[in-house]
């Protein structure tokens, strides 16, 4: 990747001040997103996905802070940007966001077109007419009649509202879109409709995207690279094929096993016992240790670092002291795991 990456995170730790002390929501997270790349960030509830998303657009909650590490956008460190810098230089025109639970993110008493005009006027010097024209174009891109830009949000169905938000996110031609659970509230068919438009945007080759979701299948279908998080730590990252075929972190391969696949209704689901811990202060242990069947004492004494997995040629980083042995033990314990003989759906 000779081209400059769009976004780089280097050992980023993000903490919240709480009554019980400093809660470490993200610890030493690192990943890189190239130009035009769709990057999936997966993990269970509370693992720090939204915290990363909010940090990237400078909207971390008031009690939150980036305690260490560097975030570079197009090479430029942005972790110390002020609110004003974010507004003037980044939001909407460089980095835009499709927030979690988008259903409530449009102002219910303002026409959608007016909301777009306002964004344009705050962040660019587009005229009203230019803004409207551009917004109409985008409505067509996301498959809503352009005349409907003057509707109020409540006149839209959930899926349309979500697409209107995607139109807003694309509005000022950003280089990076952060989508936090963009379809969690939608039905499968609507979800698929939304991803159809996200695919098209990718084909046009404009923006990169961080897709944040708890649904690993969306990432496997729609992204190039993936990072799997567990309780603030990045467990494993690489391109989706590598992670699918050859994941080495116990949480990563167990999560894959826990995920239902409707093509194999008879496959037994893997169970990951226990719950992620709440991490206070410095995290100098593997956060998966209490749930990991392969844990050893070492895992409690030090946080494993992300290291290149030798078996793969591409970038494939794993943060586990025992990735080799654990993987083998897991393979052995799985009863004939590879013979997914009960397949009902033939691959097309």
């Amino acid at each position: 990747m000779s081209e400059q990456p769009i976004l780089e995170l280097d050992d980023v730790t993000i903490q919240y001040r709480t009554a019980g002390g400093m809660l470490t929501a993200v610890s030493d997270a690192s990943f890189t997103i190239g130009k035009g790349e769709y990057f999936g960030l997966v993990g269970e509830s509370g693992c720090g996905k939204s915290t990363i998303a909010k940090t990237l657009i400078g909207a971390l909650d008031d009690n939150g802070q980036i305690s260490s590490g560097e975030i570079r956008y197009k090479g430029e460190p942005i972790q110390d940007y002020t609110e004003k810098q974010f507004n003037q230089e980044l939001r909407w025109k460089e980095i835009s966001m499709i927030p979690q639970g988008s259903m409530n993110n449009l102002d219910p008493i303002e026409k959608i077109s007016n909301q777009a005009i306002e964004i344009a006027q705050v962040h660019t010097d587009m005229t009203r007419a230019e803004a409207l024209e551009r917004f109409e174009e985008l409505f067509e891109v996301v498959g809503i009649q352009k005349s409907r830009i003057h509707d109020y949000p409540h006149q839209f169905s959930g899926g349309m509202e979500q697409r209107a938000i995607i139109a807003l996110a694309l509005f000022l031609n950003p280089s990076l879109i952060i989508a936090d659970e963009p379809t969690t509230a939608l039905d499968v068919i609507m979800q698929d409709q939304v991803f159809k438009y996200l695919d098209e945007i990718r084909e046009e080759g404009g923006a990169s995207m961080v897709l944040i979701t708890h649904d690993i299948s969306l990432v496997f279908e729609s992204c190039d690279d993936i990072a799997i998080m567990h309780s603030g730590q990045i467990a494993e990252t690489g391109d989706i094929e590598t992670i699918y075929d050859d994941s080495r972190h116990p949480y990563a391969f167990m999560l894959k096993g826990a995920f239902p696949d409707h093509r194999y209704p008879d496959r037994e689901l893997e169970i990951i016992d226990g719950y992620p811990p709440e991490n206070m202060g410095e995290v100098n242990y593997c956060t998966f240790v209490d749930r990991c069947p392969y844990a050893v004492d070492e895992c409690r004494e030090m946080a494993p670092e992300l290291e290149q997995w030798e078996g793969t040629e591409s970038d494939h980083l794993v943060a586990c002291f025992r990735s080799e042995d654990a993987y083998e033990e897991h393979q052995r314990s799985m009863p004939e795991s590879d013979s997914e003989s009960t397949e009902v759906h033939g691959d097309d």
């Binding site: 269970e44 509830s45 509370g46 996905k49 979690q100 659970e181 969690t184 979701t213 708890h214």
Partner: peptide
Amino acid sequence: DEGAMVQAG
């Protein structure tokens, strides 16, 4: 009701 905030995702 604080639990209501913590949902899948």
